[in-house]
């Protein structure tokens, strides 16, 4: 009997199977790591939280320009004049929506301030006619999502010992980006479910589906 199979190297199957198991484990772990990447942004990714004691995904998003009836400048109000976000968006701490300030609030200042500007004159004309401007929503979540500003402000601002109310801007910017540098607001965070989930995981927010889905 001529057996000449020594020249043909057969693969040692035990070693091979161990290798395969190892590779399998690597794949599983890699998947998990990838999964972690998708779900949880570690400290090295976040450029230092602006809100102390929190971590959140610093995902940038380039929104589209949404035209508004009046070219309201957040930069002038919140940036240059450092008006607190909640001065105008006064409902944010009391309701799920932050709200657009009522026209009377605008007119509270603009009967005296900057009355010569064309945009302000537009505003004044509307006020005199008793009309409200029809703003276009920039940060609009789908209708099956329940998001409440009230709870988030409490969690990150009012319950945060290192911040006081004047730091509202820092909390708002978690989801809205640096509005104070914008003129007309533009969406600068993706506000997708993944975005929400990552922040909830990082900050131990509720993970129950019905918290956010209605």
């Amino acid at each position: 009997m001529v057996k000449d199979s020594s020249t043909k190297r057969s693969i040692p199957w035990i070693r091979l199977s161990m290798l395969m198991v190892f590779v399998g484990a690597i794949i599983v772990i890699a998947a998990q790591v990838l999964d972690q990447k998708l779900h949880y942004v570690g400290e090295d990714v976040v450029p230092g939280p602006i809100v102390p004691g929190t971590q959140y995904p610093d995902e940038k998003f380039t929104g589209i320009d949404v035209p508004q009836p009046i070219n309201f400048s957040h930069k002038i109000h919140a940036g240059d004049n450092e008006i607190n976000c909640m001065f105008c968006h006064t409902y944010a701490r009391r309701s799920k929506v932050s709200g657009i300030p009522p026209l009377s609030k605008c007119m509270g200042c603009h009967t005296v301030i900057a009355t010569d500007k064309p945009e302000i004159q537009k505003l004044t004309a509307m006020w005199e006619k008793g009309e409200s401007p029809k703003w276009n929503k920039v940060h609009d979540l789908p209708d099956f999502v329940h998001f409440t500003h009230q709870r988030h402000l409490k969690r990150f601002l009012f319950d945060n010992e290192e911040l006081d109310v004047s730091d509202a801007k820092r909390v708002c910017s978690m989801c809205h980006g640096d509005i104070a540098e914008m003129t007309v607001a533009k969406k600068s965070r993706p506000l997708t479910m993944g975005f929400c989930i990552r922040c909830h995981e990082a900050n131990e927010g509720p993970s129950d589906c019905t918290k956010c889905h209605k």
């Binding site: 929506v97 026209l103 979540l141 209708d143 506000l191 997708t192």
Partner: peptide, 29 residues
Amino acid sequence: GAGVALAGCDLPSYVTLEQGEENVISYLA
């Protein structure tokens, strides 16, 4: 704040979510 909700807008993750598609009218006073 929230319009009447509709199911089914299951958009992929990074699609713009309804920017500028709804209006808000502020109160007068």
